[in-house]
Design a protein around this nucleic acid. Structure first.
Length: 477
RNA sequence: GCCCGCUUGGUGUAGAGGUUAUCAUGCAGGAUUGUCAUUCCUGCGACCCGAGUUCAAUUCUCGGAGUGGGCGCCA
């Protein structure tokens, strides 16, 4: 059986109708609770003992505590009920906190730190779990991702999965902290829209009353209108929808996009915002004891699967920058096949990742590979005479995490760009209108939350980092 | 959209044209135990669906469904 304790509790848990203390508290401050009556609730991870006594490993969101039951204390009927109870059943116990008897120490082995248990005086069955479980919460046998996602509610009870989602919350928290500190504030743009963001066909159509509409693929155009509105520094963490029929470890049809838009700034300015934010995320995970405990929990599980431990390497600032032109030259030098003007495919990304296994920027893409709203690089047309842009990507090894850039704020150039990319400015009137009265020069980016989390937690598939992923085949649960 | 794989107890797997279908985990019962990765004993539980080839198909062929991976595209 595999089990790992949740991290130490830093926050204050107020007693509720169903418990006076959390199980984490009993482990953390057990010495102060000895002799005190407590009521605790949780899932029964395991029970031992078929005779006159019984031990229950009870788990809640904060920790695991052993409950000790004796027929003399709880009555034979209750003892029998607990002994016959199925794994993962929901139970409530009232009893007295006591120091656990230490395990028989083997010769030469260090004595473990004191631990605490609850000597039960009464038991309340809240829900019996149906057996067998569709997947074992504490089993070390491998479980296929599809089985896990079909039974996600149980999969989430597994300690390393639980830890992953806590880290997801932490990463978003650290991201918000970093941006707020730099004067950004959180906002929201509509997810139901009338026009394609970038003119593509990869949108989910829907009916908005009697009008055809779409689920938005990106907050891009709306966050730019925020700049026109003088909001200057905004960020948004929200869903984006793409109807592309891809089926890879790094794509979802609904994902969370972490976006910023910043006025009076160019591409290099917002690359700075991005690398400082990521640095803060990684540094915080490395320094926060709760986050570290989550990483340890994940690593403890990985050890049972013969997988290498994940390590949070705080990246140095500034991140490496490899311009598009230099990237092409590097790929060609390494024997890859690519022409200037082509997108960098997965195989060629692997070549770049040989030297840049962690975070690195890829700035200055050819204009023709970037969307209409990206700004040209003035007076610079690249080594081949073709127009460079102020668009950039942020990669982690082979994978793209972010794309961003300085935006085109001049309405005449914007309209030219739309036409050059075979888009009708009329259809983008709601957007173009925002430029008629002047827009500050501005820049921004969009970061894939699932992708960065995949890199932090060593997940092999973005689906692992989403509670209920939406992919080509899965729309339920 | 293209290419390649896979489908065996609840879960994860091994395997072969005729086997008592392997192992782990789990589940049930029992013995022991203030246990703590308990240990020991006994038992339970499976070949995706359809058609074909064959004396015989879970195994081979075809089709379907489901699923995993790679690519394109992207975050």
């Amino acid at each position: 059986m595999f089990s790992a304790c949740p991290p130490p509790i830093m926050s204050t848990w107020v007693p509720t109708a169903y418990r006076t203390h959390t199980l984490g508290e009993i482990q953390n401050i057990g010495a102060d609770l000895i002799g005190q009556e407590v009521t605790v609730s949780g899932f029964m991870e395991a029970n031992r003992g078929k005779g006159a006594i019984c031990f229950v490993d009870l788990r809640d969101g904060t920790g695991i505590t052993q409950i000790f039951l004796k027929g003399d204390n709880v009555g034979d009927e209750a003892l029998d009920m607990v002994q016959r109870m199925t794994r993962e059943s929901t139970l409530q116990f009232t009893g007295t906190v006591s120091e656990k008897r230490p395990p028989k120490a083997k010769e030469g082995e260090p004595v473990p730190p004191p631990a605490y248990e609850v000597i039960a005086t009464s038991v309340n069955l809240i829900a019996r779990a149906v057996a067998p479980l569709p997947l074992g919460v504490t089993d070390t046998v491998h479980v296929a991702l599809d089985t896990r996602l079909d039974n996600r509610f149980l999969d989430l009870r597994r300690s390393h999965v639980n830890a992953m989602f806590h880290l997801r919350g932490k990463i978003l928290q650290y991201g918000r902290e970093a941006l707020i500190k730099e004067g950004f504030f959180e906002t929201h743009t509509p997810k139901i829209v009338a026009t394609a963001t970038e003119g593509g066909t990869d949108l989910f159509p829907m009916m908005y009353f009697d009008t055809p509409a779409f689920l938005n693929q990106s907050p891009q155009l709306y966050k730019q209108l925020c700049m026109s509105g003088g909001l200057e520094r905004v960020f948004e963490i929200g869903p984006a929808f793409r109807a592309e029929k891809h089926d890879t470890y790094r794509h979802l049809n609904e994902f969370i996009s972490f976006d910023i838009e910043c006025s009076w700034a160019n591409d290099e300015d917002v690359m700075g915002v991005l690398e400082r934010m990521i640095h803060h995320m990684w540094k915080s995970v490395a320094e926060d004891s709760e986050s570290q405990k989550h990483i340890s929990t994940i690593n403890a599980f990985r050890a049972t699967q013969d997988e290498e431990a994940i390590e949070v390497i705080v990246p140095e600032l500034p991140f490496p920058r490899l311009s598009y032109c230099d990237a092409i030259a590097t790929i060609q030098r390494k024997g890859g096949t690519i022409e200037w003007g082509a997108d960098i495919d997965a195989e060629n990304s692997d070549l770049l990742a040989e030297d840049l296994p962690q975070f690195y920027f890829l700035p200055r893409w050819p204009m023709e590979l970037k969307p209409f709203y990206i700004h040209h690089v003035e007076g610079e047309d690249g080594s081949t005479g073709r127009q460079l842009s102020r668009g950039f990507d942020l990669n982690f090894g082979r994978d793209e995490l972010t794309s961003g850039g300085q935006r085109e704020h001049r309405i005449d150039v914007l309209i030219e760009n739309l036409k050059a990319m075979a888009l009708d400015p009329e259809e983008f009137e709601f957007y173009v209108a925002g430029f008629r009265h002047g827009v500050p020069p501005h820049a921004g980016w969009g970061l894939g939350v699932e992708r960065i989390l995949m890199k932090l937690t060593g997940s092999k598939n973005v689906r692992e980092t989403v509670l209920f992923p939406r992919d080509r085949r899965r729309v339920s649960p």
